[in-house]
Design a protein around this nucleic acid. Structure first.
Lengths: 173, 173, 173, 173
DNA sequence: TATGAATGAGTATTCATTCAT
DNA sequence: GATGAATGAATACTCATTCAT
């Protein structure tokens, strides 16, 4: 992986995340990355290929983020950690997650399965805690952390920090 | 308002909602509407102007949807009706709301104030019901109905119908 | 000649003279004239037809302006009157002459013959006054009044007024 | 500067000079230059940018043409050389000067200051030769050579050649 | 690996003109 | 005589992609 290839990826992530995939011309991307336009296509064949390269990390990063939750055995802790998830995203990965959410709404790229393991883990946790409708509880909590994540990525961490403690209290954890 | 102008608006709503504003070319739009491309610009000046014409309805439709909630005085009913909101969107308006949510994520068009009256009404309701953190409760419920709405518009009503009763039960209404 | 037809002609003259024939859209012309776009074509068939209608006056107005010069018999007076020509254009006809000059430079419409009678009259006058090269003298004076006219139409009468007396003195009239 | 870029400039000069800037469509220009339409915009950003590139030479070419006059110290020679100016334009630059004059009449581009140094030099020369109204004499001569230039560019050199000797004689040089 | 000149299909928009009423 | 809805060809400009060097 050469320096220039890295620079292309970094710049693409930043621009795609802030302006949207379609709104970014390879033209401008190349200029901002300090690279010739041709090089993008040498390395990634397509503009789509560049996006894919960016998204390939998704698996890994999601694993990194969700892994600890999935490994946890104490059901209360599973729920608590899930609530804490959006607040534990490293600032350095904000653009990556912004891109994820942008694409989710741009259609084509939405993959609901991505969250399935977490959803199942949550269901099991709510079941262990003897909630009446563990699956529905899991769905709703998933909705909440989804919206909280969106808010944090949009407004910054501070404006949403109170929600962490509130949710933890609300779920009596 | 001539037939052709109406046809342009209808077609635009459908295409913008499903494919996204940027992804729809005016020439394709014109062809699908059975109209000359020029007519779009005669009537709406801009592609943007066409979008605006579509969005001008937003105010009215939101009022129509949220109105009953805002008028309600019984706090329990306020919350119940809020939960029922996403399930009461007329199927004929799905494309309109799809467009709303798409634009919210495309940036530029996000107006958080739109929901403010509902948020305040919810806060008051939770307060009346002596919840500990009425404002935070309102925020969270707002998050939930937001996500439920998105889900319904994406997957259809049936796949989310169970959530209505569950939420009503969860909030003890 | 209906009121609206007159209004179209007036507006067209003003806009063509100031912005140029090609730069004026029938669109805007109609709006500014307070008339439907279709009416322009009812009355003048073409945009070109509208221009022609404007230009048909040319003959008459040129006759009006040049007539006295052509009728004069005293050679000195012929030259003097020619020099005075650009300064005697009624302010109300400035737009008409602006249009003339604009078209002359836009190509297509240049008709050098228009000035021929004046040129011949001038030649005869210079000959009568025993100038060595009466035809060339006529050409040069023609050049001068052409440029003076352009200047007046561009900058206004005042900025060029001194040139009248100077030229009269220069030609010892 | 690649071959194709040069070809674009050459073709643009020819077409703009003969048909006028607005009358030339970029797609026709591209076809005649044997170049893709996109390349015009790669190299010059705008159609306007292409015109500017053409006009940037103006300064240089004017200097080249007027320079010798401005350097001359003998007042008689200054006037003589000024008279000779329009006749000394290299045939290869006719299109360039046609474009200059066309734009001067199209408005927007008229810069009267361009001729100021020559005008001042002429004024000084007429003063040195003890003309009564040196500044006005300069203005008039400027008018004459302006019109002569226009004539030459329109009709060709031959039809106006006699005017050089006549003017030199007229000004007793 | 890296460049940058070049392409061609596509995009929003303009505009003179037609036509039913 | 007058309107205004509608057309379709043309226009300036964009953009992902190719290719010779």
């Amino acid at each position: 992986m050469t320096d220039k290839k890295v620079k292309i990826l970094e710049t693409a992530l930043e621009l795609f995340a802030t302006q949207g995939y379609n709104a970014v011309a390879t033209n401008k991307l190349a200029k901002q990355a300090g690279v010739s336009e041709g090089l993008i296509f040498k390395h990634f064949t397509n503009k789509k290929g560049l996006l894919d390269a960016l998204l390939n990390d998704a698996e890994r990063r999601m694993g990194q983020l969700f892994g600890p939750v999935l490994m946890e055995t104490d059901p209360a802790k599973v729920i608590k950690m899930t609530i804490e998830l959006p607040f534990s995203i490293p600032q350095s990965e904000y653009n990556f997650w912004r891109l994820q959410f942008k694409l989710k709404w741009q259609g084509e790229y939405y993959k609901p399965d991505k969250m399935k393991p977490v959803l199942e883990k949550l269901t099991a946790a709510f079941q262990a805690l003897e909630y009446d409708f563990p699956q529905y509880e899991a769905e709703v909590l998933n909705y909440i952390i989804d919206s909280v994540s969106v808010g944090i990525l949009r407004d910054g961490l501070e404006k949403h920090f109170h929600q962490k403690d509130f949710l933890i209290k609300k779920y009596k954890l």
